[in-house]
Design a protein around this nucleic acid. Structure first.
Length: 635
DNA sequence: GAGTAGATAAACAGTA
DNA sequence: ATACTGTTTATCTACT
């Protein structure tokens, strides 16, 4: 929690400001057309920004092309290759060509201009969003460029070492290099995928064409520089391979060897998956397809042969073609290389498919939530159903494996799991309280199914479940056949059900113990084996539905929550699903009631909750305990 | 700003 | 002695 708070604070505050600030210098000079920026029409401003981004990208491209050429030439010279490289390049400081940041900063908006834009409200929120994204994109480029420079130095050192150490023939070196590159490529691509997901999550990338933009505030969440650095290191180690897909693109092509694909921002209107698919498609095309255009050959870019492990430099395309036919003709080596590349592509496609699927599920899931000020479970269920149906083939603890509400239109899980369901998702819905700091109160009510329906997600993703410790503990206890768990079993449940709790054990275990002791709803019962913890029905509901947790629940919703909770618990205990409690509403009816928007003025829930829930027959042996101690803590 | 709730850390004691 | 368990207190943050 602390860490996340810190992250949020960082990303929302100074980080983004710093980015904006560092971009500003000299922007006026580079934007002659927007000298009267205040009066510029919003559309024009957007257009200008796009043009600026293009210019920046091109500049970076040019600069880095030069760098790369120099590097390639030096490499070839060191390795004894017979490629002719301009002599004058040898005399240059080679890899250390500093890229003047000032050259690119003029492309960006000054804070003053941004301030004016904001103050005069000449832009719609959407336009502002685009604007911010572009600004962030530029900053990202700057960061990446710095990393690239560093990495170039490292690469240079590595090459020097290679030269000294290697008595191998040129061919051996190339093959060894290629193998290493291929291996690293896999890692890099995975990193890129993950990073793209991160960027998308942070709103730096367009998620889906046609999909509504992410909240504006998400744009202010910066990219972790360390993250970028690590990624960039990986990428630059394989810049040649990675650049295969990007050569020949026109306009703002940030996927050049010096610029990883991640910075592809909204102006491209392309998602990661789409872009990758496109790239892979191109890669899979026949060579002849690219012979027509000298600038679109995937094996030729920036004057360098992009054949894996080759890196030969050519002054013109014809020379490259000659080299291609001579050096990379149909032979054993080329065939083997091609085979390796095919495997790489296959792996990438597999990975891409997985990540795309995951991304889609995540975005759908988050999108539904973020666009539901007064959420109703139906959409969430639908989304979650899709998510689980795709990602979760298995099954585990009976209670949680049933994530399906009667209102869920689709049937994502196996009938078996549903047949074994004991606690209905709706009961869980209200039994699992939200962690207030994860969700604003308005969103608390509908996230309870989240824990169930996104069970697979929480099991596999290190995402903190947005529920309180108390609610999670109670959930774990109620899921157990005996509705009681030892402390260690509670631990195990946490680690089993939530990937997030597989780390920092000391912290969350302490929190678990703390909550067990703190909340009266958790009752310690001495057993033959030792002590077990049970959760009383009455108190269980309270911490989860305090006004602080759920905002301002209506009495109806709270009462129904309790009833559902009880029904779920009794279903669990009786395993016949029958509702022995008179006067309870049928489940479907309760769903509707529960899902109604909360009434901010109806606010006295907790007390009524306790009185209602105290009649749980399954917890008679705790009732006295609860009655004695029940209300003080939770109310 | 006050009050509240949750998260986190930590001290401490009892027990196996 | 050590680790685990359980209790309690304190502090911080977020929210109302």
């Amino acid at each position: 929690m602390m860490q996340e708070s810190g992250i949020e604070a960082t990303s929302n505050g100074p980080a983004s400001q710093n980015r904006a600030a560092s971009v500003e210098d000299g922007s006026r000079d580079a934007r002659p057309k927007s000298a009267t920026s205040v009066d510029v029409m919003a559309a024009d401003l957007i257009h200008l920004q796009q043009q600026q981004a293009l210019q920046v990208a091109r500049q970076i491209l040019l600069q880095q092309q030069q760098q790369q050429q120099q590097q390639q030439q030096q490499l070839q010279l060191q390795q004894g290759t017979d490629l002719k490289s301009p002599k004058d390049n040898e005399n240059q400081p080679s890899l250390q060509v500093p890229v003047s940041v000032a050259m690119m900063t003029p492309q960006v908006i000054t804070p003053q201009q941004m301030q004016q834009i904001l103050q005069q409200q000449v832009l719609s929120p959407q336009q502002l969003q685009v604007l911010l994204q572009q600004q962030q994109a530029l900053m990202l480029q700057q960061q990446l460029q710095e990393f690239y420079k560093k990495q170039q130095e490292q690469l240079h050192l590595q090459l020097l070492q290679q030269q000294h150490a290697g008595k191998q023939s040129k061919e051996q070196q190339q093959q060894a290099q290629q193998l290493a590159f291929q291996q690293q490529l896999m890692q890099v691509q995975q990193l890129q995928q993950q990073h793209l997901l991160n960027l998308q999550r942070q709103g730096l990338l367009t998620i889906q064409p046609g999909q509504t933009a992410l909240p504006l505030h998400s744009l202010t969440q910066g990219i972790n520089p360390a993250e970028l650095q690590q990624l960039w290191k990986e990428v630059t180690n394989l810049k040649e391979e990675n650049s295969n897909n990007s050569n020949g693109r026109r306009g703002l092509d940030l996927s050049s060897p010096q610029l990883p694909k991640k910075p592809l921002l909204n102006q491209h209107a392309s998602t990661n998956g789409q872009y990758m698919s496109h790239s892979l498609k191109r890669e899979g095309s026949t060579l002849d397809d690219y012979q027509h255009s000298h600038h679109s050959h995937p094996l030729y870019g920036h004057g360098v042969c992009k054949w894996p492990g080759c890196e030969a430099v050519f002054e013109d395309f014809q020379s490259f073609l000659k080299h291609l036919n001579n050096e990379h003709a149909l032979d054993d080596r080329s065939t083997a290389q091609c085979r390796v590349q095919m495997q790489v592509v296959q792996q990438l496609e597999l990975q891409l498919a997985k990540d795309k699927e995951r991304l889609q599920a995540m975005m759908t899931h988050l999108h539904v939530k973020s666009t539901e000020p007064k959420p109703t479970p139906q959409p969430l269920n639908l989304v979650s159903s899709v998510t689980l149906s795709k990602t979760a083939p298995h099954e585990a603890s009976p209670p949680l494996s049933l994530p399906q509400t009667p209102t869920t239109p689709t049937a994502p899980l196996t009938p078996l799991s549903q047949a074994h369901s004991v606690i209905t998702p709706n009961s869980i819905h209200h039994s699992v309280g939200p962690m207030r700091r994860r969700y604003s109160d308005k969103y608390n009510m509908p996230i309870s199914p989240d824990i169930v329906q996104n069970k697979e997600f929480y099991m596999n993703a290190e995402v903190r479940p947005p529920f309180t410790y108390a609610s999670l503990i109670r959930q774990g206890i109620l899921e157990s056949p005996e509705k009681q768990l030892t402390l260690n079993e509670i631990y195990n449940w946490f680690t089993r059900m939530f990937a997030y709790f597989r780390r920092n054990a000391a912290t969350w275990k302490n929190a678990v113990r703390h909550n067990l002791s703190l909340h009266k709803c958790f009752v310690r019962v001495e057993n033959v084996k030792g002590a077990v913890w049970t959760a009383s029905m009455a108190e269980n509901n309270i911490p989860l539905y305090t006004t602080a947790s759920i905002g301002s629940p209506t009495l109806n919703s709270l009462a129904n929550a309790i009833r559902e909770e009880m029904i779920g618990a009794m279903d669990h205990g009786n395993s016949n699903g029958s509702d022995s409690s008179p006067g309870r509403s049928p489940l479907p009816a309760m769903h509707h009631i529960k899902e109604e928007p909360l009434d901010p003025e109806d606010h006295e829930g907790p007390l009524s909750l306790v009185t209602t829930a105290n009649h749980s027959p399954d917890f008679d042996h705790h009732r006295d305990y609860d009655d004695d101690q029940g209300h003080d803590d939770m109310l």
